[in-house]
Design a binder for these strands. Sequence first.
DNA 1: CTGTAGACTATCGTCGACG
DNA 2: GCGTCGACGATAGTCTACA
Lengths: 77, 77
Amino acid sequence: MSIEVIFGQQLRKIREERKLSQEELALRSKLDRTYISLLERGKRRPTLNTIFALAAQLDIAPSEIVRIVETIFRKNS
Amino acid sequence: MSIEVIFGQQLRKIREERKLSQEELALRSKLDRTYISLLERGKRRPTLNTIFALAAQLDIAPSEIVRIVETIFRKNS
DNA sequence: CTGTAGACTATCGTCGACG
DNA sequence: GCGTCGACGATAGTCTACA
């Protein structure tokens, strides 16, 4: 499984746990709603700055998101 | 200080600790040498996939690099 | 509330060359 | 071994609109 797909799945999971809509997350992180949609479906690869912007609104450390992604990535490869 | 500048400084630090040249790192991570140079000087923002590619050749976890960056980022902001 | 599509701008990342 | 420059193709990220 590719890094961006894993990232997208985890982003969605974390967002839903926070009970935020894509719209809310987009508004708060100053990104576009359709872009959040693309990210969650693994159609885009976020830059480091984008990861920081998202993490800040999800009450999670950027490194923690990356840690989760890398853990899953190692298992599936 | 911006995220990309902090990232660049830490990338350079880690690379030098490994005693790798930009050329070597570029070759191994399948990126361009001039791009490594741009990254280290904070002129580019790496995507998540790029961070994974670099970390893999630096014997460090991607999340660990991000953790270092975010620690410095919090201090300086 | 989310997915998709298309058109668009900005930036990532490559490449060759020079100092 | 590195910084820089210019040109370039690829993709990140925006925006409007519709289902």
